[in-house]
């Protein structure tokens, strides 16, 4: 199954994501939880979108659906015109493999692989990847490529995770609380790396966080609460990540 949407860096005319009445419920009967209760959303290439919300607001569910880790209960979700909401397991895997880069709060590096190899893991299976070295240089880790995760600091590990996420030149970069486990100065270094990727590669970047300070570096800020989008704000100018303080 090859879909043009996964590979072509298309024009800005077609939104990267297009969601209508997107909903997700977990459980049944009394135990039923509406994690996402009908969300309408469009994201375009090159955008940096920050999704804010308290825990339980539905922001992680949104990321799971956009990232192809889960399927919606109702509503529609399209990725560049391809029906992501109705995709099967193999389709989702293919989508994640070719179109999405993930960055998680707890890095999730493979401890038995060096920084370079963690990135190479992706470049071995991607269609048009950059080299692991290139990706690591982009996040400022050119000198620590042959270190194992246990030999890197938290911030360095997270930057390896970013390099791993962007090495395949994904259309979308999904960051779930990327600085959640880091102190302020290392957190800022991580955000700078994300900002640079977004700017230089034109990757649609979604950052999910409960830290409202990060909103300043976004093109657009979405606020989620109780499964609904309760606020949407466009920043005229993006603040540089290096200027943020929390």
């Amino acid at each position: 199954m090859a879909h043009a949407a996964f590979t072509s860096a298309d024009s800005d005319l077609v939104p990267v994501f297009q969601a209508r009445a997107l909903a997700k419920t977990y459980g049944e009967g009394e135990a039923m939880v509406r994690a996402l209760a009908g969300v309408d959303l469009e994201c375009r290439a090159g955008e940096l979108v920050v999704v804010l919300g308290a825990s339980g607001s539905g922001k992680s569910t949104l990321l799971n659906l956009l990232g192809g880790l889960d399927t919606p209960t109702s509503g529609s979700l399209f990725y560049r015109g391809w029906d992501l909401g109705g995709a099967d397991e193999a389709g989702l895997t293919r989508y994640r493999r070719e179109a999405v880069g993930f960055v998680f709060q707890f890095y999730n590096l493979i401890p038995s692989l060096t920084a370079r190899e963690n990135v190479a893991l992706i470049t071995e299976i991607a269609a048009d990847p950059m080299t692991p070295e290139e990706a690591l240089h982009m996040v400022g880790l050119g000198s620590r490529m042959d270190h194992f995760p246990a030999q890197l600091s938290g911030g360095e590990q997270q930057r390896v995770a970013i390099a791993r996420a962007i090495a395949k030149r994904p259309a979308v970069l999904m960051c779930d609380e990327p600085t959640g486990a880091l102190d302020v100065s290392t957190g800022k270094a991580v955000l700078e790396a994300i900002e640079r990727i977004n700017r230089e590669l034109g990757t649609l970047t979604l950052i999910i966080t409960h830290n409202s300070v990060m909103a300043e570096m976004a093109d657009r800020v979405l606020t989620l609460s109780d499964g609904h989008i309760t606020g949407e704000k466009h920043n005229r100018t993006r603040a540089a990540a290096s200027t943020l303080a929390w």
Binding site: G67, T93, R97, E98, N108, P111, L121, I122, I125
Partner: peptide, 16 residues
């Protein structure tokens, strides 16, 4: 588990 889940998330197929 965690390692394998990560690989699944970043696009490894079940077989891989």
């Amino acid at each position: 588990q965690r390692e394998l889940a990560t690989l699944r998330v970043i696009g490894f197929t079940r077989g891989e």
